[in-house]
Design a protein around this nucleic acid. Structure first.
Lengths: 204, 204
DNA sequence: TCCGCCGTATGACATCTGTCATCCGGCAGT
DNA sequence: ACTGCCGGATGACAGATGTCATACGGCGGA
């Protein structure tokens, strides 16, 4: 391999993004050819700059890094995808893998792993934290149905049943039913706990 | 000034911390002499390495960057303090200033501001985002009493009144009273919304 | 000294939430 | 064709939550 690895960085916080760029800039074989701050700008930037590896944060405006990964994976399957996240939520790992990600890193891993991951995915390897992989397998899949998830997500901001019913075009009773089943599936006592647990697991 | 500026970096996510170190390492006049991942390790590290400027993230295990700032400010008032945070919550800015911080930066500001802020605080200047300063002044002070805040914080995880009463050694009725007054002060409808709003404002 | 606020508590009341049984239509698998 | 699950709905009920009036001791300011 003679030429450098072309990397795109997608991360909404400029300071973190540019800091990561500085970090990768220290590596001789890696070049950050593009930076974006929104999920919905990833695909175009990857195309434009003939990127080898895209480094995607999950929490971004526009669309999540996981959705961006899915778009890139479908349009340009040769591009390698590294998903980088603050939260080591097992559900995120699962979704990232289903979206076609080649690596999944949490931001509290040592910085050296970043450049290593870039090189490894380019060599065809997959990079996943074994602890997290175990957790993802242990906890099983998301037990919530689509509707239950939507209602729970809408309830996360403290909306009342009446408001939920209005915004989701459902009857109040139905809202209560969905929340009730979600509460039972998550083995908790009330909607607030349900929201918290679903968030922690990356199921929201 | 002939010698370099000695900086301490406190940030719990290693990847971000080391990336910021790489960023600051590009500056000739700045040297990162210490890195810690916990708030409660800041003071000792500042002492040990004769730090000129401490760069503190707010969200950290052990204690928050704001608490760490207060400790350092009291013990070693000559050390300059830069508070760095993901969330531009006006209440955070207010607390940081009260704790003796010299600069307050949000992570989605341009990376170049970081090194600049380090130099400016050392020159005796204060660095504060004007928009955020305006927001902090506009929203006024935290209207919640100590107890109301504690109860609200304890309620944030979805605990029930009975659980709150038990952990806080209060009667259930008192818990309800505190939550009720907090709900009214924040002009919301229920505890979940109260938690959300208080979080957003940095009052929790 | 008196007023006001805080922390704490009680009781009563209205409303919201969570549970359960039951129902319907649609759709996928066997 | 039958079964099960999903989305959607109703009604009844129990328990949790939010509101209000009221009370008491302590403490700080006018």
């Amino acid at each position: 391999m003679s030429s450098t690895i072309k990397v795109l960085l997608a991360e909404d916080q400029s300071m973190v993004r540019e800091a990561l760029a500085a970090l990768l800039g220290l590596e001789d074989d890696i070049e950050v050819v593009a930076q974006v701050a929104r999920g919905d700008e990833v695909l175009a930037a990857v195309r434009e700059h003939a990127v080898d590896v895209a480094l995607l944060d999950i929490e971004m405006p526009g669309c999540t890094g996981i959705e961006a990964a899915a778009q890139v994976h479908q349009a340009l399957p040769a591009v390698k995808l590294v998903v980088l996240t603050t939260f080591g939520r097992p559900g995120y790992l699962r979704s990232a893998m289903e979206a076609g990600a080649d690596a999944f890193l949490v931001k509290d891993a040592p910085a050296a792993q970043l450049a290593q991951a870039v090189r490894k995915v380019l060599a065809g390897e997959r990079v996943i934290d074994p602890t997290l992989a175990a957790a993802a397998l242990a906890e099983g899949a998301n037990p919530l149905t689509d509707r239950e998830r939507e209602v729970l997500r809408a309830a996360a901001d403290g909306s009342t049943n009446a408001e939920l019913a209005a915004t989701l075009h459902l009857s109040q009773g139905t809202v209560r039913n969905y929340l009730s089943t979600a509460i039972q599936k998550l083995a908790v006592r009330n909607r607030a706990e349900a929201v918290r647990i679903a968030r922690e697991k990356g199921w929201l």
